[in-house]
Design a protein around this nucleic acid. Sequence first.
DNA 1: GTCTATAGGCGGATAGAC
DNA 2: GTCTATCCGCCTATAGAC
Lengths: 209, 209
Amino acid sequence: MGQIKSTRADRQLSLEKAEAILEGGMQEFLAHGYAATSMDRVAIAAGVSKATVYSHFQDKEGLFTALIQRLVEGKFRSIFDLANEKVLQTAPEIILQDLANRVLNTGMNEPQFLNFMRVILGESGRFPQLARAFVRNIEQTSFKMLRQYFTTCPQLKLSDPEATARIFIGTLVHFMIVQEMLHGKDIVPMERERLIENLVNMIVANQAE
Amino acid sequence: MGQIKSTRADRQLSLEKAEAILEGGMQEFLAHGYAATSMDRVAIAAGVSKATVYSHFQDKEGLFTALIQRLVEGKFRSIFDLANEKVLQTAPEIILQDLANRVLNTGMNEPQFLNFMRVILGESGRFPQLARAFVRNIEQTSFKMLRQYFTTCPQLKLSDPEATARIFIGTLVHFMIVQEMLHGKDIVPMERERLIENLVNMIVANQAE
DNA sequence: GTCTATAGGCGGATAGAC
DNA sequence: GTCTATCCGCCTATAGAC
């Protein structure tokens, strides 16, 4: 009787706790990396006991893996997405400038995204499968999207849309890494607009014959 | 008597040990990152006792900092250097292709360099001064060198050499990160030559009027 | 399912002999 | 200067009560 009554409530509670643990784990792991994060602090951040953490996830590695996989497939999935309204009616310069600005805005203003990339890069030796998930869900997706745009845009006749997409994304990501992740803003200053303008012009000017 | 005799030998020995500790520390820290490296294993890798490690370096952080600073200023200093023989007599396509190939060769064939970059990126939150040293000694140096070349090369009239240098280096570094560091070679395959050719052509074709 | 309490081990750092 | 031996705290993971 009491058993049935509590079953639903417990399930609900359990789901909420699992969610809280993932949230707390995200906070801690993204801030300190894998090795420097303790399960005690994850538990505190989640507002549960350490034993509860271990009842929802097999071990530290399991929690970390689940967490990052989730971020790769959800929260940070669409950082490089092209807003697809009136895309083909607008001049490519505008579309590309807008895309570049949105990418850099997210990457530079959402501080968690920088930490996320830091962890992916820093742990890519020890967790190669997470690095690959990042490549599949974020890099590959953005390459495909941009290549698709380059191929279908009537004003652009690039000789190699795939390679051009790499140049575009690579320039932006490296800029983000040097200026923000590596704190290089004051050492090698560069206006974002200046870089974007040069990048976009170089691409648009480079039509195949 | 024995005192004087042993003084020189001890100094010599001490220097050798300090060197051995830096070597051992490099092995361990580059392989596992800061937090996951133990001083016990550093000592073993260096072939000395843990107390000896602490007699040469104040603590774990001090050893790590000294080590990385040294790598930034020495071993990995010149990864992006332009070989400067006959530079101005050769066609820019050749020079740039050659530079790109040498950068990617070093970065991709010297496995320690990948680990080095992984550590710099992964620890850039906790050790911002090391990240900045990396920017000053490696990124900034390569920007300057390339900007200098773009400016002086008589066949090139780029409207913004500085921004173009960023695009060049950014494309290459991001390629290295995705294909090698993040193990993306099989997920998003791309021939190195194909990327370089597109990049170089795009730059050389983009002359200011 | 969740808690408190604890086992068991490893890690950073040092004392003291030589 | 270098070693062996050791301190002590924190960390992962679990036992057992409720």
